[in-house]
Design a protein around this nucleic acid. Structure first.
Length: 848
RNA sequence: GCCGAAGUGGCGGAAUUGGUAGACGCGCUGGACUCAAAAUCCAGUGGGGCUUACACCUCGUGCCGGUUCGAGUCCGGCCUUCGGUACCA
């Protein structure tokens, strides 16, 4: 080589490059100590080829149905939020499998829905095509995650074999009068161009899906009569193990109120006004009645003089949005209509008003106003100078406003002197006896509006015939297939209208020309019974395998987001109860246990494609592998809490995996050297062995408790503590090494499934861990502590800690306590007043 | 407004029935290895004080008060954040 300066430079330059490359290769090699990609592929292939996760559903002994809410196959694919939902739940399922349960964990696709259709409007790509593509991608991602899903049970709601049974359910409900059509004021989302159920409108009056402000429209729509089950939906909550807050939300949503209906005659008219009240005891204090402005009686009862005022008032209400109108912040408004009602209990003539605070959709749409006992009535009465009569004696010092508490009835004729509960009973008896009213329970829950003016959903199986009217499709003609060719222009009418071939049909009754219903069903119908179909998703001729459904439901563990509290989780309970009533299932509730994973946000906002803040798990799994990522998600914090996304700590779980793998590599094949006993006598072990033997057994116990209760973060912390302790495994006999590593590998099984299989295999096991599940219980003898640390306090302040033999009695402890200089110096020149001793915990001396 | 949950180091978070606050991890600091860096390993790591040092003292779980020998934990009154709900008679 020529030694010109140039070439020397060039040479050193190359050396440098070479060096860097080598180093970066080394770095990589270091990172690759645990070849996750190879190992994960290997075990995923093994599980799949050996059908390790195919559940034998005929074996119902120890059955455990573990379910996560199925996935909406959106274009954003799997994001961190999905992983956070699925991976820990899968770890729980694996834990149960290792413990010997026959676990069924299926996965499927909630494949109908708006986003795919909106995507079609934007891009022209058909919802079917985009959905199928998304499912294909998501299935691959799910497999890479390493879930133990039984892929033979996979289902998608957009297949005719599935949605046929949505239609079938519709027809069964229809037969029983539980699916019906009515004209009603309904929620309309101007952005999604469809109606929405009450449950799908957010508190601020926006659309649950897209956030647009929802408006009210009067339309004729299909409803499911969920209110028929209101009482059972309420009482059933006491029988299921769900988070209290979720049950409370459902209770509030159902909103049961107990009271009475009271009939008021109208002066000079044959009409009666029936009001609903929870406070019939206050009826003597009625000073006016209020009707909802839209109430049909208003037209009949408004007197000539008041006609214009009433019309003007109604117009002024119309210009307000529903949110403005129903906002509690807004001052109540109203006008009198000129008529008077007669109070049945005392014959008093009271004016009838209309006001925005009376809602047509609740109760009878008519309210008896008792300003003395109701805050809203008080506010209204003060504004319009209406009289106030107190009927319950307020406590002394009570200031000028409505009194809603308990007390003695006053100004109330034959009720005087009774307390609220007694008065309620007595007045209801009186009303019923005199035919002026009756006991009545009302619910806030409304019927479930299931029509959607959209394409990508289940067609409603109804035909409209000019002669026969509304005719249900015959069951044998199901499914009413969703045609492929339609125009995806969202114009507030159903896209199906654009397909003549679909729309025009012969009437099943008379054979004449008729039209199909062009609306589709709310996709929450699909998700109301999918857990039953999973058990035999290909079954034809019946909605699901009844025999298996009776054996396998209710679902033992259901995991999904809390945002479904008053939607999916309510609808599914309703449909389950209906299916029970028509003899298809034998349980009252679909989900026996429920857990909500917390929400993973990104910069404070929920991850969504539209917000552009979706964190893609692929970047982490390609760098660290699935196990490290799963571990990290579980280690982040309490599962039910969620939190804001940060990848800051992922290095910690990566190190844990690397170090664990190193340890097993180091003691590769240990089981071929020796077979460890079930347990060891502690006294036969050397000091290091003793410590490790105790630690592994303590960990078995702790881990078991933690993971059983979905406390993955502390379960993993226990494994990390164990691994730290295993630094000294070298100093143990081969038997103890084998004993410990066998158990450690099993503990890794749920939380790091691929790593665990590899480690299990490394130490010399032939069968895969998941193929032949193994679990070890802790040796109770190893859990016994022979010495404990007790805290020694003087006046409640920690002065020292002492190591003493476990279960030492007070007198023995006292000696060592008093002998300690750190303690005795605080006792000098003081008198001991009291001594508190808690065995194995604390010795506290109180001095003066 | 009402209902529910939660506030603990620089950060994520631990803490059985009231009994040694800060497990585990991240980050940071120092050291070892290296020509050097990365990786790895070892040690330290709540604030303040004091000491040559070992040690010791003191304050600390959103704020104020209470119960108790002892309070992150129980009680009363607030503050903040996040969910749910919105005139439901």
């Amino acid at each position: 080589m020529n030694s010109s300066p140039f070439s020397v430079n060039l040479f050193s330059f190359f050396i440098r490059i070479d060096y860097c490359t080598k180093n970066s290769f080394n770095t990589k090699a270091k990172n690759m100590r645990y070849p996750f990609s190879e190992i994960e592929n290997k075990w995923q292939r093994y599980w799949e080829e050996k059908k390790v996760f195919k559940t034998d559903l005929d074996k119902t002994h120890n059955k455990l149905y573990c379910l996560v809410m199925f996935i909406y196959p959106s274009g954003a694919k799997l994001h961190c939020g999905h992983w956070y939902n699925y991976a820990p739940t899968d770890s729980w399922a694996r834990y149960k499998k290792l413990k010997g349960f026959n676990v069924f964990e299926p996965m499927g696709y909630d494949a109908f829905g708006l986003p795919a259709e909106n995507y079609a409007i934007k891009t022209g790509i058909h919802p079917y095509d985009s959905t199928m593509q998304n499912i294909k991608d998501i299935r691959q991602q799910l497999k890479k995650m390493g879930g133990m899903y039984d892929w033979d049970s996979e289902l998608m709601t957009c297949s005719p074999e599935y949605y046929k049974w949505n239609q079938w359910i519709f027809l069964q409900l229809y037969k029983k009068g539980l699916a019906y059509r009515k004209n009603a004021p309904v929620n309309w989302c101007p952005n999604d161009q469809t109606v929405l159920a009450n449950e799908q409108v957010q508190p601020d009056g926006t659309c649950e899906r897209c956030g647009a402000v929802v408006i009210q429209k009067n339309l004729t729509q299909w409803f499911f009569k969920i209110t028929e089950y209101a009482e059972e939906l309420l009482s059933g909550l006491d029988k299921i193990n769900w988070p209290e807050k979720t049950k409370l939300m459902q209770r509030n949503w159902i909103g049961k109120s107990i009271g009475a209906e009271i009939n008021f005659d109208v002066d000079g008219s044959d009409e009666k006004i029936t009001v609903f009240t929870t406070r019939p005891d206050t009826v003597f204090g009625v000073t006016y009645l209020v009707l909802a402005p839209e109430h049909p009686l208003v037209d009949k009862l408004t007197t000539y003089v008041f006609k214009k005022d009433v019309e003007d008032y109604r117009d002024s209400i119309k210009s307000l949005t529903e949110i403005e109108r129903t906002s509690t912040l807004k001052e109540k408004t109203g006008v009198p209509i000129g008529s008077f009602a007669i109070n049945p209990v005392n014959g008093k003539r009271v004016p009838i008003w209309i006001a925005d605070y009376a809602l047509l959709t609740y109760g009878t749409g008519c309210v008896m106003a008792v300003p003395g006992q109701d805050e809203r009535d008080w506010e209204f009465a003060s504004k319009y100078n209406l009289p106030v009569i107190r009927t319950v004696q307020p406590p002394e010092g009570f200031e000028d406003k409505a009194y809603t508490g308990d007390g003695i009835a006053i100004n109330s004729g034959f009720l005087n002197g009774l307390n609220v509960e007694e008065a309620k009973e007595k007045i209801i008896e009186w009303l019923e006896k005199n035919n002026y009213g009756k006991r009545k329970i009302n619910y806030r829950l409304r019927d479930w509006l299931i029509s959607r003016q959209r394409y990508w959903g289940t067609p409603i199986p109804i035909i409209y015939c000019p002669v026969c009217g509304e005719v249900p499709v015959d069951e044998k003609d199901l499914p009413v297939e969703l045609p492929y060719n339609v125009k995806f222009k969202s114009e507030g009418t159903s896209p199906l209208l654009s397909n003549e071939e679909f729309m025009n049909v012969k009437c099943p009754k008379c054979g004449g020309a008729a039209k199909r219903e062009a609306d589709t069903m709310d996709t929450f119908v699909d998700s109301s019974w999918y857990y039953l179909r999973y058990l035999d998703p290909k079954i034809s001729g019946q909605i699901f395998n009844k025999d298996l459904a009776e054996k396998w439901t209710p679902v033992d563990m259901y995991v999904g987001g809390a945002e479904h509290a008053t939607m999916h989780l309510l609808y599914a309970r309703f449909i389950h109860k209906f299916l029970r009533d028509i003899g298809l299932v034998n349980s009252d509730e679909p989900f026996a246990n429920l857990i909500h994973q917390g929400t993973i946000t990104n910069n404070g906002a929920k991850m969504s494609k539209s917000k552009g803040n979706v964190v893609n798990p692929d970047e982490f799994t390609s760098q660290f592998g699935s196990d490290v990522f799963r571990l990290y998600l579980m280690f982040m914090g309490p599962y039910e809490l969620g939190g804001d996304w940060s990848d800051k700590g992922i290095a910690g779980t990566d190190r844990f995996v690397q170090r664990s793998y190193d340890l097993f590599e180091k003691f590769k094949g240990i089981l071929s050297k020796c077979l460890p006993n079930e347990n060891y006598k502690i006294t036969s072990l050397n000091e290091e062995e003793k410590l490790i033997y105790k630690k592994i057994n303590q960990t078995l116990k702790k881990y078991d408790q933690e993971i059983n209760n979905f406390r993955f973060n502390t379960a993993i912390a226990a494994l990390m503590e164990l691994l730290n302790e295993l630094k000294n495994l070298d100093k143990c006999s081969d038997e103890i090494k084998a004993y410990t590593l066998k158990r450690f590998a099993v503990l890794l099984g749920p939380v790091a499934p691929h790593l665990a299989e590899e480690c299990w295999n490394l130490i010399g096991n032939k069968k895969s861990l998941m193929e032949e599940p193994v679990w070890f219980d802790a040796d109770p003898k190893a859990l016994i502590k022979d010495s404990v640390n007790i805290a020694v306090q003087v006046n409640g302040k920690l002065r020292t800690t002492l190591v003493i033999p476990a279960d030492s009695e007070e007198t023995a402890v006292k000696q060592s306590v008093l002998a300690d200089e750190k303690v005795s110096r605080y006792l000098k020149d003081r008198t001991v007043v009291k001594e508190i001793f808690v065995k194995n915990k604390i010795y506290n001396i109180v001095v003066k």
